[in-house]
């Protein structure tokens, strides 16, 4: 049962990996401009040099062959060297992935804890104003505006803005994410509180704290699905936030690789991200089934 779920997930991940890498490569190839444009800019190489570069990058082959070659290279582990990053693709992608993982895990954990705390205040302690105020403030500005605002406040108060460090992007993501996730958690909890079993608990004289925990346990699966979703998006790159603070994560990597048409890095990026996201989906599905007793019987 458990293993069949895993097998199913792996098969899906495999298909996603193939389709996503092919699509990303095709999009980058069909968008105007190629690595030779990036290398030579306003100039043109000689015919001989152009041919040499094209054949080295495999650009002279038909498009479907290029895709097949990249597929083969993904699975043989030969990810090649970046055209512009001066490093092997695996190394480039791994460094960015590590940065994004840090950012994603920390942002998700902290945001979730903050949201649960706020929900506790409003559901079990009847303090509604503070949570509402915080979530309204948080969701009043798009993430990128929060980033700039936090940066400006730090600069004007002469606090060091740690460009390239994790502190600021993390703060931005937590501050901007709290609003949405609190609202989602809150609406799920409200729905749970209207379910008959909570009424039964109340009738049994359970304390409000325990009822809150029961309700939380009840809604957590759906909540986690959404949270995992955003965690995945951050691993794939919190592009705007990373760009403002020059944080070298997957989002910045993607922007860099695309603007320099660094195909090996793009493919490496796509392969890595699809594997990670697929794994995350699988974990989230399994968690969901585990935490929701009713689904366990049905699947």
């Amino acid at each position: 049962m458990f293993w069949s779920l895993i097998a199913n997930g792996v098969a899906k991940a495999f298909a996603t990996l193939l389709i996503a890498t092919a699509l990303i490569y095709l999009i980058a190839r069909l968008f105007p401009g190629d690595p030779i444009t990036v290398l030579y800019g306003e100039q043109q190489p000689s015919e001989e040099v152009r041919k040499a570069i094209e054949s080295r990058l495999g650009l002279d082959k038909p498009l479907y062959m290029q895709v097949l070659i990249y597929w083969k290279r993904i699975f043989t582990g030969d990810w090649g060297r970046s055209i512009f990053f001066a490093e092997p693709v695996t190394q480039v992608v791994f460094k960015s992935l590590l940065n994004s993982l840090k950012l994603s895990i920390l942002a998700t954990v902290i945001t979730t804890l903050v949201c649960i705390a706020l929900a506790y205040l409003s559901m079990a302690r009847d303090i509604a104003l503070l949570p509402t105020a915080i979530s309204t403030l948080s969701s009043s500005m798009p993430t990128s505006v929060w980033g700039v605002t936090i940066m400006a406040v730090l600069a004007l108060t002469k606090k060091p803005v740690g460009f390239g460090g994790i502190g600021l992007p993390l703060t931005t993501l937590v501050v901007a994410g709290t609003g949405v996730f609190y609202k989602i958690l809150q609406s799920l909890l409200e729905k749970a509180y209207s379910e008959p079993f909570i009424g039964a608990y109340i009738a049994l004289g359970m304390t409000r704290n325990r009822i809150f925990l029961k309700a939380l346990r009840y809604v957590l699966p759906i909540y986690l699905t959404t949270v995992f979703y955003r965690a995945g998006l951050i691993i794939a790159g919190a592009m705007a936030t990373e760009a403002i603070f020059a944080y070298p994560g997957m989002g910045l990597l993607l922007l860099q690789a695309f603007s320099s048409r660094d195909y090996p890095v793009l493919i490496g990026w796509a392969a890595t991200v699809s594997i990670i996201l697929a794994t995350l989906n699988m974990v989230s599905d399994i968690l969901h089934i585990y935490m929701d007793p009713r689904l366990r019987g049905s699947s």
């Binding site: 600069a155 060091p160 803005v161 460009f163 760009a243 403002i244 603070f245």
Partner: peptide, 17 residues
């Protein structure tokens, strides 16, 4: 430091980074 956003560059010098 590579900072494409002009407000980020201003922030970098105002804050002392």
């Amino acid at each position: 430091l590579i900072l494409p956003s002009s407000s980020a560059r201003i922030a970098s010098i105002l804050s002392g980074s």
